[in-house]
């Protein structure tokens, strides 16, 4: 468990708010629109509509702010690093200097811009994964990929593979810990010594892990067949939902966000 804890990105935060209840496909599309908006922006001011959109989404979702802050924590280092680089190495009008260190106003502007970009990207993805259960998300991805079926992309199978992978992450993590404990109790030194020694110490963990994973895969294939699964056979879906007003609202708002960002660019 210790591996998986504290990592918020990708974690589901169950709830019953309109954001939770809206269609995963719509949320996925809206997230993509918002991310495109974030990526095409060139001025911090263009982030204003995106920030408004995400903040209202967060408020409506009733997921505590703490959850989002924890989501930002892992990228804090990245933010600090890029901010430092931007501030120190952007040429321009210096507003403060100390020896060779020189802070320019252009540097500050750029640092603010990049910080906003990273934070907004994180908020958007945390909001999506927190308000959508993994199974809904994989179904949505499969729906999104459906048009590519005509060029031979097995979208339903991809979704199934993703959900099985998600199902087995905790099981495999538990297994890894068990193997580490077993090897340590036999005197294995894991993560000690130089780089080569450290790499080598992972072999006694990886080999049993692979062996057991292959056995699992074998069993799983039989279990799936035993429950009537066949590749290329049509399947229906347990999770079913139509298109509701919330979905329309989310879609319209995400497009408005994109439009507003474009307008802000044009006006300047």
């Amino acid at each position: 468990m210790s591996f998986s804890q504290g990592f918020v990105l990708g974690q589901h935060y169950p709830g019953s708010s309109p954001v939770h209840r809206s269609s995963a496909l719509v949320k996925l599309i809206a997230t993509i629109i918002v991310m495109v908006t974030i990526f095409v922006a060139v001025n911090t001011s263009e982030y204003l509509p995106v920030a408004l959109f995400l903040l209202s989404g967060i408020m409506v979702s009733r997921i505590p702010a703490r959850f989002f802050l924890r989501g930002i924590k892992p990228i804090l280092f990245l933010i600090v690093l890029t901010v430092a680089v931007q501030i120190l190495f952007t040429p321009g009008d210096s507003i403060w200097r100390f020896g060779v260190v020189r802070v320019t106003s252009q540097g500050l502007v750029l640092a603010a811009f990049i910080t906003c970009r990273l934070v907004l990207l994180t908020l958007a993805s945390v909001l999506l994964t927190a308000s959508t259960s993994p199974i809904e998300l994989t179904d949505a991805i499969s729906d999104l990929l459906k048009p590519f079926r005509y060029i031979g992309l097995p979208s339903a199978e991809i979704a199934l593979v993703m959900s099985i992978a998600m199902r087995f992450v905790p099981t495999i993590l538990e297994e890894t810990e068990r193997i580490i404990r077993a090897q340590v109790s036999r005197g294995a030194r894991i993560g000690e010594g130089g780089l080569v020694a450290r790499m080598r110490s992972f072999i006694p963990i990886l080999v049993p892990l692979f062996v057991s994973s292959f056995r699992r895969a074998d069993d799983l294939a039989i279990a799936m067949e035993a429950r009537g699964f066949r590749v290329n056979q049509p399947r229906t879906r347990y999770h079913l939902r139509g298109f509701h007003a919330v979905d329309l609202v989310i879609l319209v708002f995400s497009l408005v966000t994109l439009g507003a960002a474009v307008l802000l660019r044009v006006w300047r």
């Binding site: 199974i135 998600m166 199902r167 279990a223 429950r227 399947r235 229906t236 347990y238």
Partner: peptide
């Protein structure tokens, strides 16, 4: 196979 109990029970039904 699935990430929740109810989805797992539904897996075979989806195949039908």
């Amino acid at each position: 196979v699935a990430t929740t109990v109810e989805d797992d029970i539904a897996f075979g039904l989806e195949n039908l």
